[in-house]
Amino acid sequence: MNDGISLIELILNASVAVQMVMLILLILSIVSWVIIVQRWLVLSSAQKGVFGFEQRFWSGMDLSQLYKEGSQMQQDNVPVVGMENIFRAGFKEFMRLRQQGSVDGEAILEGAQRAMRVAYSREEEKLEKHLAFLATVGSVSPYVGLFGTVIGIMNAFLGLAAQAQATLQVVAPGIAEALFATGMGLFAAIPAVVAFNRYSSLLDNVTSGYITFTDEFSSILHRQIHTN
């Protein structure tokens, strides 16, 4: 009592319910950080990919040449991601329909656009993956922490009721442990909320880039159909 309670002692002496809450919050925090780092890698690489591919696309390179480069990359086990996937899906469908010959121009363009839309939604799904988990952690973990706090304080007061003489030393460790649960909840929630907001805006950026690219590419295809 005289010398202070260390943090480890505080956690080890906590009641089972509070310990469970702390454990859950620790796992939530670790998982949310895994997702934060992983999403950061994916989203930043997607953003870089958008700029890189747009540069290549608008460099005046022949489109079939660009498609062949992509195929070469796939053979070399280098993943083809993002905007390039959309381009490849649209271009592949366009070429295939054109080779059949009998189909009229509007149908070819429609088919290419449909293929690009599918590729776009697949890409968007890939980018959005796990972001919902971050949102959940951000909104729920404060409540989980609060739950631990309520149980901890309840235990502290029950202990106080058993005591004949109420002193601060009886309640203090219980309240400290209870508050520690809230602290952990906030600790898990704050980065998750910040990352979720940041990544949502990043995702909007990237997907709007994809949509713009899809429109531009279909206009190019449209021009190609009508010039022939």
Binding site: S6, L7, I8, L26, S29, I30, V31, W33, V34, I35, I36, V37, Q38, L41, V42, S45, V78, P79, V81
Partner: peptide, 30 residues
């Protein structure tokens, strides 16, 4: 190297970063 990380969707790297971060904070607190 960056692309290689994205091949595995960067999961091993992320797990290592997250666990290290948490243990660091715990050690600092103690």
């Amino acid at each position: 190297m960056f692309n290689n990380l994205v091949i595995f969707n960067g999961y091993p790297f992320s797990v290592i970063v997250a666990v290290t971060f948490h243990s660091l904070i715990l050690v600092l607190l103690i």
